[in-house]
Design a protein around this nucleic acid. Structure first.
Lengths: 247, 247
DNA sequence: AGAGATTCATAACGCAGGTTATAGACCCCT
DNA sequence: AGGGGTCTATAACCTGCGTTATGAATCTCT
């Protein structure tokens, strides 16, 4: 899963907006792969912002540890995602990032990113659009935390993962591997681990989700999508026409 | 309240990163002021993205109307804020925006923004940093929705408004005007209007907040800040050093 | 000034989801 | 293979917040 294969860049490429130099620049972000172990912390909250990362293999999550002892997981990152763009424009990290399972990440520097911005407005627009899309997913979760019940939050969470995994070819017969524990899912959805378990049982009884350890199957993804009225504007693949002016 | 006075731009200006042309470009975003009435909808969710806005006077909010009949307010915009950057990179609006009270906004086009990006990398970086800062505030609210109780959410909300208003000179003796109804506050914090009322009473009884209609006073802002362990990284005024490479 | 619409405070009641506890299943280590 | 740790399921109990209701205060419109 290279960045060049990611949705936005594919979109730019399709419109002929990417030159050979652009492609070289973006591949340049992935020259230093690093193997990382399960649970490894890539950086802590408040650490200095010294790099960003492309996830090549494995899952990661960004999180905040709170004063009351609990944790809020902000976002789950899958292969092909860029980690850390949230902190662009800040001198310190707003959130920690840790690996869920083992994997491979490609760190790149602030400097490389600036370089890329200056040398290719098309890539800059693409990377910004990607970052904005990630923020849109966060916003969607904010809506769910504010106004939906536990079963809707979980259904939405699983369906979003399903869509994102599908796009990187990690879904097989409506099933996928899900390395998050119920505790971690709870930390993402603002629920207790116990209630996540209850809610899984409920969705199972309704035939919407089956699960065996780390393997999740959505027997009827469309039914799940109807339940959560999934808004897929924010996962849409096309960039607005104005972006094509960047030749 | 002009954009040039906004925190990030002030930061850039202080470092001498802004040329005269830069300043002209950014003032160019505010050439078409438009008076808007209380409750006026600037755009609806799913509308085509045709413009962005600088708020000159009055408060606005972005929101999502949900299938279950409720509303989630995503963000409150104060004078000096840019509205709509959330939708940059999308062809359709992810959220509606409406005025809370009457005011003045300055719309500018997608085209103007691109123009500015191409002609001034320094301004581009500044505007992106501003947008990222707004997203950071959203993230902070997500954390509060996920993991904090009603009184902490409300205290945090009020304290954030207090800080933001202070920076634009709209706080007088720890008091400020707050045109949001309790229903709207509830829609922002994921609470019912009734519970917002209860929670206000609670904070009042503890001497943390007094309120008379639209006028809110925080008798002891520091006590409030302690209660919510306010994380002001995301409101920090300085840009990281790397941004100064944009001369 | 009077009528209707908003907004707000407070009370009564119910339930979704937090908390604590227990036990079984699976994992990793030596 | 056995022992400790983690993860999950389910139950029992409790509470924070939603819901509905009512009355008072304030705003808006004519």
């Amino acid at each position: 899963m290279t960045l060049l294969d990611s949705i936005v860049m594919q979109g730019l490429g399709k419109h002929g907006a990417l030159t050979a130099e652009d492609k070289a620049l973006i591949l340049g972000l992935e020259l230093t792969p690093r193997r990382v172990s399960a649970g490894e912390v890539l950086w802590q909250e408040s650490a200095e912002v010294d790099m960003f990362c492309v996830v090549k293999e494995g899952w990661a999550y960004s999180y905040r540890n709170l004063g009351n002892g609990s944790m809020q997981i902000l976002k789950v990152y899958l292969p092909g995602d860029i980690i850390g763009m949230r902190d662009f424009g800040f001198s310190r990290r707003l959130a920690g990032v840790a690996m869920i399972n083992e994997g491979v990440v490609c760190p790149f520097s602030h400097q490389q990113l600036f370089e890329l911005f200056v040398r290719s407005p098309a890539l800059a627009a693409g990377i910004i659009a990607t970052a904005v899309r990630q923020q849109a997913m966060l916003t969607e979760r904010l809506v769910y935390l504010g106004r939906y019940a536990a079963h809707e939050r979980l259904a939405h969470f699983l369906y979003e993962l399903y869509l994102r995994l599908q796009r990187i070819g990690a879904v097989d017969e409506n099933g996928f591997s899900m390395p998050l524990s119920q505790e971690q899912i709870g930390d993402a959805l603002g629920l207790s681990a116990v209630h996540v378990s209850r809610t899984f049982s409920m969705l199972r009884d309704e035939g919407l989700v089956t699960r065996d350890r780390q393997h999740v199957v959505l027997p009827d993804p469309e039914a799940l999508a109807r339940l959560v009225e999934f808004n897929n504007t924010y996962i849409e693949e096309t960039l607005p026409p104005a972006f094509q002016s960047f030749h």
